[in-house]
Write a protein that binds this DNA or RNA. Structure first.
Lengths: 338, 338
DNA sequence: GACCGTTTTTTGATCGATCAAATTTCTTTT
DNA sequence: AAAAGAAATTTGATCGATCAAAAAACGGTC
């Protein structure tokens, strides 16, 4: 073996005085090889510093042990962080299963469909994880058609019966999060709890509002506190809360995101209502810095769950990825009190 | 060709009535193939929806078109965001060059060295990008020894002569950032500008402090304003600034990070000094939300520069990655005024 | 039209592993 | 101790592409 070149399975076989296949078996199916032979081969592997060529193995086995994840164009705002944390968690978890995470960027849906085709034909990935799925998502259709296993981070909004999604998904139970937040405020702050969310209807927004409404409804005797409307920005949230505080007596505010919470916080402090209890959503660094309570999404849980769906329960020997069973799972978020 | 199975180069060749190699040439070296033949082959490619098997190609060419990037364990705090943005930018840029980004997780240095060995022996990646390089970093030594091209995000702290780093690197010019921040405050706020940084010495910290010191020194007639010391947390920064404001007359504060800036902001607002001008560093979502000025690191620029170092100037045909020339480059950050 | 040099196309070998089947070795049984 | 069966090991084929060299087609010259 020429120094500077890496050892091949053939080099190991020669060094150990056995055949290629035996070396291969020591690595992939040790039970088929007798003890003493195994030791010989292991010694040769150590001595040569051999580790199998990934590409050759993948070509032969037709499995890449790679999961593709699309990285959305950087959203800039606070919320992109959740996806980043998810990617982090996914990477760590995948590596314990011997899987790799391959990122790809796509600016448009067409762009992503092109990528998906390439992945399918080129055999780049074993599975794909979609994010930001919309009802009737063309990506899901394409993946199904091409026979690439996939799962989504985010429930298939719009499918009336979640069970009938047609593909596996994992999502955060936003309603459970705001429910916990509302209950917490009802106990600690008082009965008049408002909700500050997005102006227009959106799946995520409605979900989070629902948690508040369902909790406030049965418990509060008076008609539920007014819902506040605000666009994405901090100043708008701040303005909305300022005018709310002028007209109403409010004990606390449940927010759809930390952005809203920061706006509310600023309005409260500047309006001399530092006592106003506010709970945000997403548990971003900003909320932490300001000492605001917030609902933590636990993207790590999502990563674990989604991998389990795609690849079978942990500990499963890496095998042909099973066509994932089309079911969904909601991960319950956790309220971080500050 | 069986439906459901993807087409191979052989299928295309048969369909077009030419040989494997001609198809290969149409894809990789069209100039070697006559016009009419090219059209025939292209038509067959379209008809069969062929795209070359990535693993077979990589096995044969011994090139993976993949760049490995380690994803550090999630740091949680505000600062991790810079790395995430870098990964984002890198992914987008890499894909325009036909490169892929492969993530890997490592908790310890040993863990990462193991990964590096695997990558080298297994032929997983063409190049690696290191982050958080320290002086005498064992990873750099290992990569050099194994002959894997690499570059670092972060200058090689400790090497007295940056030019002599021994490996290529790209970093943010922290001093230039705080210089711009300080100049801005000198013009807009007044002459008494303080600096709020980390308690202990660190490469990054010293760099950022230097930009302030060098600017304040020549311009300010009086001895430079007191430097504040504070650990990483918001409350500590807040406490430090509170006590500073009691004793000193300060016009503005340049901060080493947005975390410090948020603490300073809170101290200022609660101390009735809302007029105090503060500039943060990292331009995180939190700073944006609070309307604080901040120094923007431009990780996108870093990504571009680092890819250029590794792979040659943009537009270069994908080829054997040149052994990168060991030089460094500082990217000048941009002050975002709010 | 025969000859020669180019250009274009085809053929055979190879990258490094695993699969499938054949062969050898070891156990057990009678 | 021979035969049958099980276990361990080896051999030949293969995954799908590119490389290197051989063969065929083309173009121009005399």
């Amino acid at each position: 073996m020429v120094p500077g070149k890496v050892a091949t399975i053939e080099d190991v076989a020669r060094a150990a005085g056995v055949s290629r296949q035996t070396v291969s078996n020591v690595i992939n199916a040790p039970s088929k090889v007798r003890e003493p032979t195994q030791r010989k081969v292991q010694a040769a592997i150590e001595a040569l510093g051999y580790s199998p060529n990934a590409m050759a193995r993948r070509l032969r086995t037709q499995r890449t042990s790679t999961i593709g994840v699309r990285l959305d164009a950087f959203s800039g705002g606070i919320s992109g962080v959740v996806l980043d944390r998810f990617v982090h968690a996914l990477t760590e978890h995948a590596s314990t299963r011997g899987l790799r995470v391959l990122l790809y960027a796509a600016r448009t849906v067409d762009d992503e469909l092109r990528h998906i085709n390439e992945f399918a034909d080129g055999g780049e990935v074993d599975a794909i994880i979609l994010t930001n799925t919309a009802p009737g998502d063309p990506r899901a259709a394409r993946l199904r058609e091409r026979g690439i296993p996939f799962a989504a981070f985010g429930r298939p909004w719009g499918a009336h019966d979640l069970e009938k999604a047609g593909h596996p998904w994992v999502d955060i139970d936003g309603a459970a999060g705001t429910r916990a937040a509302t209950e917490h405020l009802l106990e600690r702050a008082g009965r008049r709890i408002a909700f500050l969310g997005w102006p227009s209807d959106s799946g995520t927004g409605d979900d989070r509002e629902r948690g508040w409404r369902e909790t406030i409804g049965p418990r509060a005797g008076d008609p539920s506190a007014p819902r506040l409307i605000s666009a994405e920005t901090v100043p708008e949230a701040q303005a909305a809360v300022r005018s709310l505080l002028q007209d109403n007596d409010i004990d606390g505010i449940v927010c759809a995101t930390d952005v809203h919470a920061i706006g509310a916080h600023l309005a409260a402090v500047r309006g001399g209502r530092s006592d106003l209890q506010i709970v945000g959503f997403d548990n971003t660094a900003a909320a932490e810095a300001l000492g605001l309570s917030s609902v933590e999404q636990l993207p790590e849980e999502v990563a674990t769950a989604i991998l389990e769906m795609l690849m079978g329960p942990e500990g499963t020997k890496i095998s042909r990825p099973p066509t994932p069973t089309p079911t969904g799972r909601l991960v319950e978020p956790e309220l971080i009190v500050r």
